[in-house]
Design a protein around this nucleic acid. Structure first.
Length: 489
RNA sequence: GCGGUCGUCGUCCAGUCUGGUCUAGGACAUCAGCCCUCCAAGCUGACGACCCGGGUUCAAAUCCCGGCGACCGCACCA
């Protein structure tokens, strides 16, 4: 199913809407989650907590979104999270100054060259606009961070462009007071902000977006000394190495053939593969793509993007970056604090391997993979514990005491599950509506219920029905949420 | 940011070229009622829109300008 169908479903069924929609000056790249979208997001994050954070014994924090200027001096974002651009004075086209010069001179032009030097080079080479041969204006740096003025003094600060900087600056205290030992993962779910020049494609590129980031701190001398690696050594992943796709590579093979730098990286790639499998992605359409030198972030020594294939092409869901000691060393230098920690009896500056997950796009891709257009209906085959509604309670008819009995069933379930009570229209219509938002189960109260206290339980995917005792509803729902298939014949 | 295409009920479409008959029409969806013993049935009724601002005109959904947004292409994507 395609992007248009999914976005239509999102807009029509209360998953998502453009932020500030009713105003004419609404900005691109900002979206609000509606009730169903919000529930799916919360449930997705819960899955992330269960299957990555808790499973691996990580610590989760929640840092502030506004951070001081020096954080980004240290992180390199003030200097490097920029594009040097020049604008043509005649046709108005914007170009990357460094790339233009590189093309014209054939020499390497570092991206971080001061703008004065770029201007000088443009003057010397007599560079003109490649589109219209018009004169070029002054080069300037466009920083993708949102700047804020805090307090009456209007102190420079920034909305964080990635959640992980909170983890790095909090790390020294966390390590001490939480009695942490290397290797240790610190995780965070929250908002990040990037002033994209041209946000596109709905939630795929946002200016304000959710990330779930995991920073694994480890002793670089012990990157191959990891007991839990054995648990996942046979887990297979798909690796894309410079355009060559290796499908079904065992974690152990990936390490032994040196496709990944160490056991720790192999283990976390395998763990992430398992996570998305559980989240319901079609893993046959997934890969870890090793990034070449040009593509990597400025802080990454090795990088693998976890990507899935969708109607929009391959979409990056998680950047897996081996950041080395870059971040902690930089924060140590700029802050003047000692950020090294004790590992055994040796002081080390830990290295970092990160799993930087885009939440909004993950949810989009899971929905797209789960959406099926069947001849008679649209159905989203979400795994039950990600569904916005777990169960619908439907009286078959609106008379003879059936609604009353249905409400008796509904009321005690309300506080434990996401339940939806619906008595309007035909029962078939109500099934269809719930299918379309991914609700895995419906309970229908009929005349037999009044006789023997049984209700029908209807399965979203097969549309089959079984009868269960009404006092068995909660245990049955718990089974469904655990992923048990009660409708197999 | 640039270029192209476009913007009408929740959704899809008619109306725009050729200004007035548009008090903006239809279908689907939604809501209420009737009916109703399990997969979008039927009947009755209701709710509901010209993206925003300015201009031209006796008169603007319709023509012009600007803004915002969407899509496609370019560029960008730490």
């Amino acid at each position: 199913m395609g992007y248009d169908e999914i976005m239509k479903l999102f807009l029509e069924r209360g998953f998502l809407m453009p932020s500030c929609e009713i105003y004419s000056d609404a900005l691109a790249g900002f979206w609000d989650y509606g009730p169903h979208g919000n529930t799916v997001k919360n449930r997705y994050v819960d899955l992330w907590r269960r299957e990555l954070v808790r499973r691996d014994g990580m610590n989760e924090i929640d840092g502030s979104q506004v951070m001081s200027k020096k954080v980004f001096v240290a992180s390199g974002h003030l200097e490097s999270f920029v594009d040097p651009i020049v604008r043509c004075e005649k046709c108005g086209a914007t170009h990357r100054a460094d790339r233009l010069l590189q093309e014209a001179t054939g020499k390497l032009v570092p991206e971080r060259l001061p703008v004065e030097q770029l201007d000088q080079m443009i003057l010397e080479t007599g560079l003109k606009c490649p589109s219209c041969k018009g004169p070029l204006g002054k080069a300037r740096r466009f920083n993708l961070m949102f700047r804020l003025g805090v307090g009456a003094a209007d102190d420079d600060s920034y909305l964080r462009p990635e959640t992980c900087q909170s983890i790095f600056v909090d790390f020294p205290r966390l390590f001490k007071v939480m009695r942490l030992k290397l290797p240790i993962g610190i995780a965070q779910f929250g908002k990040s902000f990037r002033n994209e020049i041209a946000p596109r494609q709905g939630v795929m590129r946002l200016r304000e977006f959710y990330q779930a980031e995991i920073e694994v701190f480890f002793n670089p001398e012990k990157a191959n000394n990891l007991d839990k690696y054995e648990e996942l050594r046979d887990q297979t992943i798909n690796l894309d190495l410079d355009g060559t796709l290796l499908q079904g590579v065992k974690c152990s093979e990936a390490f032994e053939s040196k496709h990944v730098p160490n056991k720790l990286v192999a283990y976390y790639l395998a763990l992430l593969h398992q996570f998305y499998d559980k989240a319901g992605l079609d893993m046959k359409r997934s890969r870890f793509r090793r990034l070449g030198g040009q593509e990597k972030a400025f802080y990454a020594e090795e990088a693998f993007d976890f990507e899935v294939e969708t109607s929009l092409g391959w979409v990056e869901l998680v950047a897996c970056n081996y950041r080395t000691g870059y971040d902690l060393a930089a924060h140590a230098k700029v802050s003047g604090q000692d950020i090294s920690v004790l590992d055994g009896d040796k002081k080390v500056v830990p290295h970092v391997f990160e799993l930087s997950m885009g939440i909004d796009r993950s949810i989009y891709c899971i929905m797209e993979h789960a959406y099926a257009q069947e001849p008679e209906r649209s159905v989203v085959k979400l795994r039950p514990d990600l569904a916005p509604i777990t169960v619908g309670i439907l009286p078959l008819v609106n008379k003879d005491g059936i609604p009353e009995f249905s409400k008796k069933i509904y009321n005690p379930l309300k506080t434990r599950y996401d339940v939806f009570y619906d008595e309007s229209g035909s029962v078939g219509r109500r099934y269809r509506r719930l299918d379309e938002i991914g609700c895995p189960a419906c309970i229908t109260v009929d005349y037999q219920t009044l006789q023997d206290q049984t209700v029908t339980l209807r399965d979203r995917d097969s549309m089959k029905q079984i009868r269960i005792k009404s006092d068995q509803i909660e245990t049955t729902l718990d089974k469904i949420l655990r992923g048990e298939d009660l409708f197999k014949q």
